[in-house]
Design a protein around this nucleic acid. Structure first.
Lengths: 316, 316
DNA sequence: TACTTTTGTGTAAGTACTTACATAATTTAG
DNA sequence: CTAAATTATGTAAGTACTTACACAAAAGTA
């Protein structure tokens, strides 16, 4: 009957829009039931002004995630409805501070009551009726933020077309990709730690400047893998931040990166390469073993809570 | 950071719209990557015409769930782009049969390839990244179809305000509510059976005409509970299709319905009331016991697979 | 100090749909 | 066999946002 459902995930966008439209339509009717001549789309803005009197448009934008144009339009309408007043800020004349009018305060109680009833219904719908919807949406948004759909498709395409994998050095502008790849697997298996954030947010400062290097695997114009060599001392480097995009796992990209890293370490004058890992990461441990790394007795203190395996490769 | 998330399920609509917009925007970029000057919104229509040459606009509408206006506009654009041709049907001159042009056929292969790549990515995103999203959406849509949000809120409000519960007889137009209430709990605990569908789809024919009756509990203008008496013979009735909306459970509405049903059975000249239930439904069994029903040894064959308890109330 | 850049806001136009209205061809009813 | 209802389609205008452009006030810079 419903073709979109049969078509599969491709039509997700269309489907979400339809659901959204349906919910908004219902919401309009519900406001009417409560005797409120109030539009659903006003709600977030009105609510924020009620909660934080004197808030500016820009602050609202930051909190609700719409564009400033949208907020500007909603504010204009609310002012015209006599529910909000706008006053130019004394210190900064660009800012307009918003407040509820007496009429706005009058609407507030019934709005609160209605919100509570709707909230209760939605709670039942979302938690009992369709468990996991909220978390699934959050997860999807997070995934898309980490790597946009377009980039994911590009990677999949390149993989399908058997595009060559190129290993190259980190360049300016690679930081977001480097970060995303690592955040992805770390959050999948463990939790991000302060030491991760330092290295991932400012790789130049924490990795390159001290004499280390970052290698990236590129396929079809997309960064699909990464690893880093951190300089420990003149003849010793640590291999870390090894990550490969799930879309291209199984194509020996990790091996290519690992080999390139060892080769680079040798070129940099290393006599040994050290690494930390976790027993959960069996694929990675297999790779390290293949590269010639040997297990060390757990001895050296690590800044990472997840490290429960330490390995070393002695270079001749 | 994201206020909508903190606000809770009330903002679900807005959130879905944002996600939808994001996905559509990404899709447009992906088409460009594949060298297609093709808009995402064309896809379902174009796809259907490719699959079913000679399809009419109306048939497309039925399959993709958009309005006819939307399909009409998309078709117009596709014709203007030279991807589709429209021909008036010979038998029925209102119908316009659609087909791909040679240019349309030329686009098809790269579109298919692209669709497959996108599909693979979405599969990973939706199944691994945000498990349950698809089912959760389906469940939510199903719930909303069964009872619209507005009606749910009305029930919750009436319950909060302590609105009186009125038990009354089935009237014309009550069938959808009667059906929805029962489908809801049956699908929650068991599976719908053919015998259910007969009684729920045509209650007049299968319940009222043979001499039975249907009682509904109404609160705040919404039907929140139901039960039926089916005539077995001159002095024997079966109590069935007892259902109370989850939003108002715990307010003794089941008890009100049960008492009313027993009273009605007495008025109809019954000497006994019989019922079938299931051991899983402890709340219902408790209610039946309270009403004076006694367990029978499982003996009578039932048209319902879920029936594993049989009870009887002897009226004096 | 004058300049460029950034920030806060507003407006116009676009988007992917919708609802509302219109019209012709066909089917149904009396 | 004609009138009324239904069906298939088209178009205009609305919706809840968006992007793109504009501009003044403030902040940073030479």
């Amino acid at each position: 009957m419903d073709f979109l459902q049969q078509l599969g995930p491709v039509a997700l966008g269309s489907r979400l829009r339809r659901l959204s439209e349906h919910l908004t339509g219902e919401a309009a009717g519900i406001y009417a039931d409560y005797g409120l001549s109030f539009q659903p789309r006003w709600y977030p803005v009105f609510y924020l002004v009620a909660q934080q009197p004197g808030i500016t448009s820009q602050e609202i934008v930051e909190q609700i995630g719409h564009t400033h144009a949208s907020v500007s339009q909603i504010v204009k309408e609310l002012v015209r409805q006599g529910l909000l007043v706008m006053a130019v800020d004394a210190q900064d004349q660009r800012r307009r501070r918003l407040q509820l009018t007496p009429a706005g305060h009058e609407v507030l109680p019934s709005l609160r009551v209605q919100t509570e009833d709707v909230g209760r219904v939605m709670q039942v719908l979302v938690s009992e009726g369709s468990p996991g919807l909220w978390q699934a949406l959050t997860a999807l948004e997070e995934q898309l933020r980490r790597q946009p759909l377009r980039a994911r498709v590009a990677v999949t395409r390149a993989a399908r077309e058997g595009a060559p994998v190129v290993v190259r050095d980190f360049r300016a502008g690679d930081q977001p990709a480097f970060r995303a790849l690592n955040v992805d697997w770390i959050e999948r298996h463990f939790a991000l730690e302060p030491a991760d954030l330092k290295a991932l947010d400012q790789p130049e400062h924490y990795i390159l400047t001290p004499g280390g290097c970052i290698l990236l695997a590129e396929m079809g114009g997309q960064v699909v893998g990464a690893c880093a060599l951190l300089k420990q001392d003149e003849h010793s480097y640590e291999l870390a931040k090894m990550a490969v995009s799930p879309a291209v796992q199984g194509r020996r990209i990790g091996q290519r990166l690992g080999e390139a890293a060892v080769q680079r370490a040798r070129a940099l004058g290393a006599r040994r390469v050290y690494l930390e890992s976790n027993t959960k990461l069996t694929a990675a441990l297999g790779l390290y073993h293949k590269l010639g790394f040997q297990h060390l007795p757990q001895a050296i203190p690590s800044p990472y809570a997840r490290a429960n395996v330490q390995m070393e490769l002695v270079l001749h």
